[in-house]
Computed example of a mutant assay.
Amino acid sequence: MIRTMGTQINADEWHSFFREWSDRLLLFARQQSRSLADAEDILQEAMVQIWGKREVFPRIDSGLLFMQIRRVAIDRARREKRREQREQEYANADDGGFFESRKPGDALDLEQALRALPNEQQEVLVLKIWGGQSFEAIGRTLDISPNTAASRYRYGLEHLRSNFQIRELK
């Protein structure tokens, strides 16, 4: 049982509440997001946050959950906007980036070439080049050995070199 400001709320009451309100809460989250998957993530995050603070609130309250869904959605949108701005700044950087362009369409060609690689090589290339991760860190992230990460990186670069001139990467 969960103690909440002198009131006892058990897990069955939370489940019952969620069954009754889940469709409405999800609909509200959907209005705050770009996709159903994002809405489900927002709802889940809001529920987890409320659950973590359950000792502060006297009872289960739909209004509180609507408010928390809105807060989570706003925070998520802000993070996404900041991420997009960072990516745009990087894309607009005038340092030539990692790849030397042959012609204006090369960015799209590069994206297509990356997508044509096996997923394992794509992951390692993105983590190494754009993520700035070491092979050891990549190995931990992908649950592979650092040597496997290095091999996948080397094979991915070899495939890309057949279509692009790539400056030496460290």
Rank of each mutant, 00 (worst) to 15 (best):
K103R: 14
G139W: 02
N10H: 06
Q133Y: 14
I69D: 00
Q68S: 04
L127Q: 01
L64K: 03
L64C: 03
W51H: 06
K170C: 01
F99K: 08
Q133N: 12
F99V: 15
K81C: 10
S145Y: 05
V48Q: 11
R115T: 10
E111P: 02
Q85N: 09
G105F: 06
S145G: 07
Q88D: 06
E120W: 05
N119E: 15
I74K: 08
I9H: 04
A150I: 04
N92W: 15
M67R: 11
V126N: 08
F28W: 05
I74F: 08
Q88T: 11
D109G: 07
D106Q: 02
N92P: 08
G131I: 11
G132I: 04
R24F: 05
A137C: 02
A37E: 15
N119H: 13
M1N: 08
R34V: 09
Q85H: 09
L25P: 01
D143W: 05
G105L: 12
E87H: 12
D109W: 01
R71D: 02
T7P: 01
T7L: 05
F99A: 01
G96A: 03
L26D: 01
L114E: 06
D75M: 11
E123C: 10
D23S: 13
L36M: 05
Q165D: 10
V124I: 03
V56D: 05
D38E: 15
E87C: 11
I2G: 04
E89F: 12
E84I: 08
I50D: 07
E136M: 08
Q112M: 13
D75V: 11
D106T: 03
I50N: 07
I166A: 00
I129W: 10
D61F: 06
L27F: 06
E100R: 00
F17C: 00
E40Y: 00
Q68K: 14
I74S: 04
L25W: 02
Q8C: 10
G96W: 02
A149V: 01
L108N: 09
G132A: 03
D95W: 09
E120Q: 14
A37N: 10
Q121H: 13
Y155V: 14
A29S: 02
Q85F: 10
R59P: 01
L108R: 13
A93K: 04
M1Y: 12
K103Y: 09
Q49D: 09
V124F: 01
L125V: 05
L43S: 00
Q88N: 08
L142F: 15
E80S: 08
K170N: 05
R167E: 14
F17A: 01
N92S: 15
A137H: 01
